[in-house]
Design a protein around this nucleic acid. Structure first.
Lengths: 126, 126
DNA sequence: TCGCTTGTACGAGTTTCATCGTACTGCATG
DNA sequence: CATGCAGTACGATGAAACTCGTACAAGCGA
């Protein structure tokens, strides 16, 4: 083994911006349809996902598990796929994980103000 | 018959602002839920209705038939009811007709910018 | 009062969607 | 290479929701 810092906490290196994994299949900006996007956002769980990404994601994409959603994995797959196929999120494969982020620029370009509504959304309060 | 203009097109007189029929049952402003409103707007026909109201309704409410939608009456009833129950439109009974308008002030207060997206929406173009 | 008009109520058929269990793939790590 | 983990694929189930035909209610006008 090398003589250099062998027990230093290892920070996982994200791929360079130039070297990102290809996004999973998604609609192009011009293909985004308002009715489809609204349909994707008309579900409380998906609103929760998108809002959490908007408010807490800072610079990084996040894997499915990061959200701490108490649902079976197959349910989560379903909803993340719905968001991606509607064009709300982009997903990339990072080794084991499939990470998501909101397509902020695309959505703001096509539907300005929409993401502000999602960020301001408050889930049911009783 | 009277001697006064008997074949002049008759403009139906709307009730005075003070004397409007009661609105049909609808959610109060505080009860409006983003996910419900988005769900109501995630249908192309309903987007068409709301957009047409926003762009062409000027000062008056409009009856179901005004929209010129080529669907059976019972289908239209379904969609107008969905819009009203989600809080997007208000409906009042004027004699025979049930007229609708968009709750612009309420929606702008709760979800600012949302109606702009609907007004800017373009239906499928092929 | 007799129709005509506007719209509802109800019900059926079809589709779409949310939910979730189970089995599977693919990768990373030891 | 063997284990474990993230997540998918597939399929079943049940609940909504869209569509629409038919029958009905209610107002308005002749």
């Amino acid at each position: 083994m090398s003589a250099t810092a062998h027990d230093v906490p290892v920070v996982k290196v994200l791929p360079e911006p130039e070297n990102l994994p290809e996004p999973l299949p998604e609609p192009a900006v011009e293909e985004l349809r308002l009715e489809t996007v609204l349909g994707a956002l008309s579900d409380p769980l998906r609103l929760t996902i998108v809002r959490k990404l908007l408010l807490e994601s800072e610079a990084f994409d996040h894997s499915c598990g990061w959200f701490g959603l108490d649902r079976p994995k197959s349910s989560l797959t379903h909803h993340f796929k719905a968001l991606r196929e509607a064009g709300v999120t982009r997903q990339r494969q990072y080794g084991l994980e499939r990470r998501s982020h909101v397509r902020v620029a695309d959505l703001n370009a096509r539907f300005p103000g929409l993401l502000d509504l999602v960020a301001a959304w408050a889930p049911d309060k009783p």
